[in-house]
Design a protein around this nucleic acid. Structure first.
Length: 464
DNA sequence: CTCTAGTGATACGT
DNA sequence: TCTCGTCACTAGAG
């Protein structure tokens, strides 16, 4: 995620902050970062049987409460659709999650087959079972994925607290940067250094439930000595990051943050010259790297965001150059205004573009049947722009049905030998309740609610 | 020596 | 069909 090592390199310009210093300020939060903190709690719930499925929301709700108590005004932003640039790396991540889920579920099945009659448990056996449990939690939490359904459920909870929420058309990072650029938020809270690359002036990292975090101000990064003699600044940060390898571009082997900074320094900040210097030093820079780097740079500058004022999509900082020929939807999809508004409101799924209320099946989080792990491909490089050969043969899952059944038994609080007939029907009441909540809100919500409340509007126009 | 890239341990609500 | 881990440590290359 982000640029490896950049946050640590900027540690000398970080400052400890507390939410009490944010009174009266509007704080934009990257929703995914805080939902991610709840994944372990969610896995813990799963292995322990009884669960209301709500633990995943605790970290974000605690942070929201801390901000509200301090007199700050939180604004919650969620990720939306995928960018083509990230599809490749997302595919690898999904595969890793599926593998983790697969192994965790197998282990969970074994654990539960042993657990009911633990009468024959010596202390050592109990200890071993505990160790197994921890292992299952570890693997299961790695397999939990945060779906848009979960994000929207979180959104409804936050809105019930009076928090303004929005789903970005693409990445929350770019949307937060747009809000900051439009002076709708004063500071961002996230774990991702990318927000600095996108140009957010004040970013708080590691904000915890007690309200403590570490702030980096974009205007002060040129004071950092972490990459010396290279001196970073807000304008050249995108060049450094695409050279060092970011999410939008396959990295050059043996080139990380330090090496990229070194060559950029020697080239006076000019990326083509830096690449030439790198080649001269024996680094194998792909022939098309400069073109790919220019495309990746545009993602930081021109990604599609939702414009609250105009109630439609726009580009972040500038229109893409007229002559630029880019892959389809490279900067984000072109959506009709009503679809874009529906996504931003959390009423339309950002990927399928279908209304949430119709398709919101019981969100089973990590409980869906995992796809079996594919055999490791022999020796293909991990990230290439070549043809996707991954669709070759789907092997037979060794024991998929039995594993799926074990999952089903784990689903309900006490699943009374449920068959598999009811798919549309609700199995878990909490998600059913969530669904009705969504349906009700979808029926009554008008998208005009996206127009910012008075306190949220920028200090320019007050006409409504 | 510096730096990249890979590995292993690790995580916790009421 | 449906969203991002991270840190410390170290082998190994330059």
């Amino acid at each position: 995620m982000g640029i490896p090592g950049l946050l640590k390199a900027l540690s000398d310009v970080q400052r400890e902050v507390h939410v009490s210093e944010l009174r009266g300020l509007r704080v934009g939060l990257d929703g995914y970062c805080f939902l991610h903190r709840g994944k372990y709690s969610r896995a813990y719930e799963l292995v322990n049987g009884q669960t209301d499925g709500q633990a995943i929301f605790n970290p974000i709700l605690q942070v929201l409460r801390a901000l509200l108590a301090a007199g700050a005004e939180p604004v919650l932003v969620f990720d939306g659709g995928q960018l083509p640039a990230k599809r490749l790396v997302e595919g690898a991540r999904k595969e890793a999650r599926d593998r983790a889920r697969w192994s965790a579920n197998l282990q969970l099945q074994q654990l539960q087959s042993l657990q009911p009659n633990s009468s024959s448990s010596s202390p050592s056996a109990g200890h071993a079972a505990n160790e197994d449990k921890r292992e299952v939690i570890r693997r299961l939490s790695a397999g939990v994925d945060i779906t848009p359904e979960i994000a929207v459920a979180c959104m409804r909870k936050a809105e019930a607290m009076g928090v303004f929420c929005i789903v970005a058309p693409c990445e929350a990072d770019a949307q937060l940067a747009a809000l900051a650029h439009d002076n709708r938020i004063d500071v961002c809270a996230t774990e991702d250094v990318d927000l600095l690359v996108y140009g957010c002036p004040r970013v708080i990292f590691g904000l915890d439930r007690n309200g403590y975090g570490r702030e980096i101000r974009l205007a002060e990064i040129s004071r950092s000595r972490g990459l010396s003699p290279y001196v970073p600044n807000p304008e050249t940060l995108p060049d450094l990051c695409v050279f060092a390898g970011c999410d939008y571009l396959a990295p050059i082997p043996r080139v990380g943050l330090r090496t990229a900074a070194k060559f950029l320094h020697r080239a006076g900040g000019d990326l083509p010259r830096a690449l030439a210097l790198a080649r001269r030093s024996g680094i194998q820079v792909p022939n098309d790297f400069l073109d790919r780097a220019r495309e990746a740079r545009l993602v930081f500058l021109c990604q599609t965001v939702f414009d609250i004022e105009e109630q439609r999509l726009r580009h972040l900082k500038m229109e893409p150059p007229a002559g630029a020929v880019l892959p389809t939807d490279w900067l984000g999809p072109a959506l009709a205004d009503d679809v874009a508004i529906g996504i931003a409101c959390g009423e339309i799924h950002p990927m399928t573009h279908q209304p949430f209320a119709q398709q919101l099946k019981p969100a089973l989080l990590a409980l869906e049947a995992p796809t079996p792990p594919v055999a490791p491909t022999p020796s293909t490089p991990a990230l290439t722009w070549q043809e996707p050969t991954a669709s070759a043969p789907k092997q037979d899952p060794p024991q998929a049905p039995s594993t799926e059944h074990a999952l089903a038994s784990c689903t309900g609080p006490s699943g009374p030998d449920d068959g598999e007939g009811d798919e549309e029907d609700s199995e878990s009441e909490e998600w059913c309740a969530e669904g009705s909540l969504l349906a009700a809100s979808a029926a009554s919500t008008s998208c005009e609610e996206l127009l910012p409340p008075p306190a949220f509007a920028p200090s320019s126009s007050s006409s409504s």
